[in-house]
Amino acid sequence: DPSALRNRLVDQLLAAGHIRTAAVEATLRRVPRHVFAPEVPVRTAYADDIIPTRHTPDGRISSSVSAPWLLAAMLEAARLRPGHRVLEIGSGGYNAALIAELVGPTGQVTTVDIDPDVTDRATRLLAAAGYDHVRVLTADAEHLPADVVPEGGLDAAIVTVDTWDLPWITMVAEGGRLVAPLRLHQYVWSIGFTKRDGALISDEPLTVCGFVPMQGAGAWDPNLRTIPGRGIRLAFEDGTPMPVDQLAPAFDKAPSTVRTNVTVGGEEPFDSLTLYLAGALPGFCRLSVDQDGHNGVISPPPPHWPGAAIVRGTSLARLAHERIGDGDHGKGEHEFVIHGYGPAGHLAATEMAEHVQHWQHNHRAAPCPRITVQPKDA
């Protein structure tokens, strides 16, 4: 019974705190998620997980129905009201239906996707679920037709694609909302903003998340540099890429290790630390390695989670962690350590360790960071 499964899912989202308002709760109880996922069994449609709907030729997910917990959190962050005019970037169909419920018959919802197969599917499924008043548009979201923006601006824009930038800042009305998974040095945080005096000011807790990548004009450049002969790649996705050829000999010798005395539990997230280091340290990059290569990197980062690193001339330092005990709950306790490679590796590692300790003493227990976004020409 789809409605029983749906109500059970909503009960779970309420208990976990992802739903905070009666409006979002009622909406999630009403909109039939399984209608937007006809490819999977009804039970799968009501699991708290993503449902992939489209893949690239090399097997990566290029479109999906997002996880319910994350959609609930983003809808809460969007603070939608009846009558709001809303733009959604990335069209699964389900989220557009949720938005349409929240803004009611006096609201307006436009959902945009670059992939015509995705918009065809969304159009079909929205009609099947009774939401054919949602406008579905095939377009590159970086170059939208002018009529997407109503007079006076959008009340809200909700982005459901990982995005490196926020070109929609000028389309949002003063006092309006923008919710987006924003990439900073490959770290992706869903951020809820209000527009004030032309700038977007974050005013919701940041949520670490991941969506399918932006395609088209907004596709980001990872600015990858490969250290010759090593199978080590450095991504300078934000900031200026640095030369890396001179780093090759640094990995001939074992690194020096600088301990931080800063620890983290086995299942405790430390995303705030990595975002802090990305902003604080010039020459910051993300380090990945060929898994089968003899790259000389100690405790190499896992394939889909490049390590945090900095380049200092012929030397490099990288954030790692070592298990130092079982922790209070038996899930492990780890100490952040910095590995320094090359002639000035110890110095670079000491510099990074000092920033880890600064974060520990000043920011770790503080409220989450506040993000302000201004148009470039402001």
Binding site: D165, D238, L275, A278, A366, Q374
Partner: peptide
């Protein structure tokens, strides 16, 4: 205060202190 420069925007991050 950390600043990231994007194509269309400038992103500033304020880190509150404990």
């Amino acid at each position: 205060l950390h600043v990231f420069h994007k194509k269309y925007t400038r992103i500033k991050i304020d880190w509150p202190v404990v």
